[in-house]
Design a protein around this nucleic acid. Sequence first.
DNA 1: CCCCATGTTCGACA
DNA 2: GTGTCGAACATGGG
Length: 279
Amino acid sequence: MPELAEVEYYRRQWLPALGDAVTRVHLHPRARVFRSTDPRQIPAAVEGRAFREAHAHGKQLLFRFGSDTWLHVRLGMAGKLERGDPAMVPGKHDHLVLFTEARALAFNDYRMFGSAVLLRSAGLPSFWRGLPPMPHEPGFTRGALAAFLRRRAKAPIKAVLLMQEQFPGIGNWMADEALWRARLHPACPAGAVAGRKLSDLHRTLREVTEDALRVIAPDWSDPPDDWLFNHRWRDGGTCPATGKPLRRETIGGRTTCYSPARQKLPPGLCHGGIPGREA
DNA sequence: CCCCATGTTCGACA
DNA sequence: GTGTCGAACATGGG
């Protein structure tokens, strides 16, 4: 599920336990989510230590225990963080549960595309400090966006927006939402996004990120119906801006929803740029 | 049974 | 080396 706003929502699920000491750890030592770490080290590493920090950046989460022990979590396609009471009984897909005196903090992921990694570092791990700015942060500039789109000039803009090295936290629905708001066709070559269109996209990426954080992160509220969001999941949807039919097709390897009446390819690219698809 | 799913990674290929 | 594409990963829902 999670893109940037949902990841922030999950971070907040664990926040009430900040300051509490971990008393006990439950884990599924053979779960695939531990493929990059030795999970047997986790209990000794965090038991008796206080939960001190909780960070989210894009789709990644980072938690500190004690002074130098960190847990790095990616939620993949179906991962969740949940909070329960200390009597909670871990379920089939609760791969890691941290118990404190007052709570249980669970990492749950039935598809196991996510991961959890134990790290040791005196301060914030260096990879974390080097993460690229999220679209609502000041470092996300129009110039940096332009340079990146130029480097990926031939790829469809939809595929480029999913690249976490430049757009941390943007996922399938946020990319579609930003393109729809900017009136950009998802199959438009990234190199053709320039001038006014580039400014529009730079702005809508920031707006979608801010809006998603405001609406979803506090309590997972449903976005309003004047976003593309509520109309994009099934065939037969209607564009909330034009009232015309939406279309769904695979672009950049992912199901992409857009409004053909609102999102046009630039002139000259109308023939040949779009992979044909029968209705 | 079939297809689909808010993600990342790896190997094949141009 | 660079860039792109599809498959694979694992599970559940329609």
